[in-house]
Simulated assay, not measured.
Amino acid sequence: MTNKSSREFPALSSYKVHLSPEIVESVREALPRVSDEVVAAIIAEVPAYQDALSGQMGETIRTAVGIALGGFLSLASGDGLAAEAATATPPALEGAYSLGRGEARSGRTTEALLAAYRIGARVAWRELSSRAVEGGMAPETLAEFAALVFAWIDEISEASAAGHADERATTGRVQRQLRERLARQLLAGVTPEQLDDAAVRAEWTPPSTLTAVLVPNSQVGTILAKVNQATLEFDDLRDLDDHTLLLVPDAHGRRRRALMKALEGRRAVVGPAKPWREARISYERARRAHFAGLGSDTEQHLVELVLSADADAREDLRAQVLAPLADLRPATAEKLTETLRSWLLHQGRRDEVAAELFIHPQTVRYRMSQLRDVYGDRLDDPATVLALTVALG
């Protein structure tokens, strides 16, 4: 705001209006009433301000109106407007800038703020021009006086709009940082109390569930435009520098289909919907699916994800359950392993096993006979069958 409040204003200095002491005194006497009428008109005509002008914020707005009118009068009563602008405008512009920031914090839009200025300008001009004429202003000077009034309003409304924009930008940066911190804590598995506190600080209303979506960095903007605006974004991912994590609120049930449709062709990987404090589970599953090269919907690949959850343990299990075949020739062991896997998955239906392996049913019978010779009754033991199915699945 320093540059805005300290510069000169050629638009103002171009107006050669000089108010006589009599006019100045007449206008000055009217300033408190003009301020009240401006505030009353804003309350009546701008819906966003109907309940806003009470308490501390109302006092701030009334003070800003008073400073703006006082600054204008100081400006218009000087012998040299260019010189007066340097001293008259900074306090009023600083007040207008601060007002704009306060309005942004209160959640009111720039449109509402500028509407208040338009209405204020109309009321102020009506009252100020009336008092100026009563004080002896010549009719031919009135047009210049009007132009100065509205040029002044343009300046202070521009300062308020700048304050509003700066506050929104600052608030947006802070909120993004707090939401990134919340996402980091969700992945870190901190306590529920810490998560609740982080959500409050980020002004983020916790949903029922969060769904992790791993997205290529180049696709983030496009996807964010299609999902819930409360989606958390986090790009500081271990071993995934080219991806960003989105945690999408309440994308469970039928909403998951809509999410998957929005992600078609985007090379995204979608974890399961989990209670929001358990979002790390969804992320870890999406991460494993990504590195395993599976499809975009992890819910369609649960078997593969389960079987690959601990690759080393699975290899150990495979070696353990296939130990009875270790003494056979490698080619024979490979064929028997292939047949045993198909037999388990087809639940012993010989013709289906034969069709899958492109061999004769009698060959299946022969190979299963060999397997029973080495495994014995263990092929009828549920625990062994389970271990074989997991190892070979």
Rank of each mutant, 00 (worst) to 15 (best):
E84M: 09
G100N: 01
E233Y: 03
E140S: 15
D312F: 14
Q362H: 13
T63S: 14
P10M: 06
L302T: 13
T171Y: 10
L214C: 10
R350Y: 13
V374E: 15
E8Q: 11
Q347Y: 09
A121W: 03
E25R: 05
A313F: 07
Q50K: 15
W152S: 00
L73A: 00
V149D: 01
E180G: 15
T141H: 11
S308H: 07
G136E: 06
A230Y: 12
G107S: 12
L325V: 08
H290S: 10
R33E: 13
D197L: 05
P272R: 15
V149G: 02
A165R: 11
V27T: 01
Y49T: 06
Q347D: 13
A273M: 10
D380S: 13
I119N: 02
R287G: 05
A30I: 00
W125G: 14
G221W: 01
G80D: 00
S26C: 08
P192N: 08
R101W: 09
A92W: 04
E134N: 14
S98P: 05
R288E: 14
R254K: 08
E127G: 02
H243K: 14
V215A: 10
L263R: 03
T211A: 03
P361G: 07
Q175M: 09
P207T: 11
A309G: 12
F9D: 10
L186H: 03
E203F: 14
G348D: 01
E37Y: 03
G265Y: 04
T222K: 10
G271F: 11
S6K: 14
A124I: 02
L31R: 05
S35F: 01
A355M: 10
R105M: 11
G253Y: 00
T332V: 07
E158L: 06
A251S: 14
A30N: 07
R365N: 14
L224A: 10
E45V: 07
P330N: 00
A115G: 11
V213K: 11
R108N: 08
A112N: 12
R62L: 10
R201K: 14
V220Y: 08
V38Q: 04
R255Y: 03
L114C: 06
P272M: 12
T109A: 11
A230Q: 15
L128W: 03
G189C: 10
A309V: 07
T209A: 05
S308D: 11
L75D: 04
T337M: 02
R238C: 00
L114S: 07
A162E: 11
E111M: 07
A169M: 11
A323P: 01
L128K: 00
A354V: 04
Q175G: 05
G78V: 01
D351N: 15
A112T: 07
W152N: 04
M368W: 08
R267W: 05
R122H: 13
A112H: 10
L224Q: 15
L224F: 04
V123G: 01
I223C: 09
S35L: 09
A115N: 07
G107Y: 07
K274P: 10
R256K: 12
E144N: 10
E278Q: 15
T231G: 04
V46G: 02
P91N: 07
V17P: 02
I156C: 06
M260Y: 06
S130G: 12
L186A: 01
G78D: 00
A96C: 08
E299P: 08
P330G: 01
L224M: 11
A169H: 14
R341T: 09
A41V: 02
Q50N: 13
H164E: 08
P361I: 03
